[in-house]
Structure formats: C-alpha cells, structure tokens
C-alpha cells in the first residue's frame, strides 16, 4: 500500500464514523458538528482524487456557510429530543432490516467485482499544469450550459417561494417609506391659521376677569 492509501482509509474511517454519529448523536448541535466533520473529511478524499476545486468548494460553501447557518438555526430551535425519538425502538427492527438489506445489496453490486481497477481502469495521470478549476468552468459553460442555467432558475424559484411563504404585511408595523417622507410638503404637516397677535378682550370676559381680582 502506498502512503495515499493509508490516508484514504483514515479519511474513510473518520467519514463513516462522523456519518453514523450525525444520525445517532442525541444533541442536535453535536449532530451538526459531526456533519461538519463528515464534509471536511469528504473534502479530504476529494483532494486525494485530484478534484481540488470541488474539495475547496465543499469546505467553503458547506462547512463555511451552509453548516454555520444550520448550526445557528439548530441552536435557536427548541427541540424536544424525547418527542423526536419517540417510537425509535418500535421502528428499529423494520428499519434496521431494510437498511441492512439495502447495504448488503449495494455491497454485492458496488464491490470490486463491478468497479475494480481491472474493470474500470485507473484514469490516466494528468500533467502538472492541468487545472481542475479551468476544466470544470469550461464544461459548465459549454457542455452543461442548459443545466447550469436551469439550476439558476431553481435557485430563483427557491427565493421566490421563501419570500412568498414568509413575507407578511403586518398591520402594526411602524415602518415609514422614506420616499413618502421626502415628498412631504409643508402643507401636509402644518395648517396656517390666521390669528391677530393681539385680541381685544370682550366686554364680558373683561368683566369676568376683573371680578376675582377685586375679591382678592
């Protein structure tokens, strides 16, 4: 075995362990952190496969952005673990049986019998100046242009859907449109009332006013 093989097996073992812990960890925050570990080791395996760009993107996008956001959400939610795990033992025999069956089938088919190096063949080594990123960019904008654009549309729909489902016109909001604020004219705010600076007191008032003075 070469050095790279050892690295691969170490990464693979960590990846499997982390993946298992994601679904078995009691604390959702721990589960999310194990998912970060799983992504990180998967990125390591991709590096071994010489897919540098994908490896870095996996770390940047998934570990750096998606999972951090996810962690915040998990921390903010008040998750009742006991309620979530209700019925776990009840479903375990059936689910476990199906899981083991599927795993066995996949081992039978995905083993080295069908995917061994003798059948598929190792890819030819790339020259030193081969740029994984440039190649990906080239096919993304030429061969896979249509699917790339469609992915953009899917993301647009996701934005529209998220806004349509969460945006509410709240009646109690104190928000003021700045445009309306700027457009305000003086006439909208103050009413000019013509009033003499000095007003002759009426006869009656004058009489009323003088009376208390006399009393005092």
């Amino acid at each position: 075995m070469m050095f790279q093989d050892y690295i691969f097996y170490i990464f693979a073992a960590i990846l499997l362990f982390a993946g298992l812990r994601v679904i078995t960890a009691r604390n959702p925050v721990h589960a999310a952190l194990f998912l970060v570990l799983a992504f990180f080791t998967a990125a390591g395996i991709w590096l071994l496969l010489e897919a540098e760009f994908l490896a870095i993107v996996l770390v940047l996008v998934y570990v750096g952005a998606v999972m951090v956001l996810f962690l915040f959400v998990v921390m903010m939610l008040d998750i009742n673990l006991d309620k979530l795990r209700e019925g776990f033992w009840e479903y375990l025999p059936m689910a476990g049986f199906i899981g083991v069956l599927m795993a066995a089938e996949m081992v039978m088919i995905l083993g080295s019998k069908n995917f061994g190096v003798d059948r598929v063949g190792a890819p030819p080594p790339k020259p030193a100046d081969y740029s994984n990123t440039a190649e990906l960019g080239r096919v993304l904008y030429s061969d896979y242009l249509l699917t790339f654009e469609l992915a953009a549309v899917v993301l647009l729909v996701a934005i529209i859907a998220a806004i349509a489902l969460t945006l509410r016109d709240r009646k109690d909001t104190k928000f003021i449109d700045p445009a309306d604020q700027v457009k305000v004219k003086r006439a909208d705010r103050i009413r000019m009332v013509s009033m003499p600076a000095f007003k002759e007191p009426l006869e009656q008032d004058a009489a009323d006013n003088t009376e208390p003075k006399d009393k005092a």
């Binding site: 699917t147 469609l150 992915a151 549309v153 899917v154 859907a161 489902l165």
Partner: peptide, 13 residues
C-alpha cells in the same frame, strides 16, 4: 432531473 426539481419546488411552495 433539473426539470423535475424545478417543477417539484414550485409545487411544494
């Protein structure tokens, strides 16, 4: 697959 996802996402929303 992309067409299917585009359709499904709109339907969920």
């Amino acid at each position: 697959y992309m067409g299917l996802e585009l359709l499904s996402l709109c339907l969920y929303a």
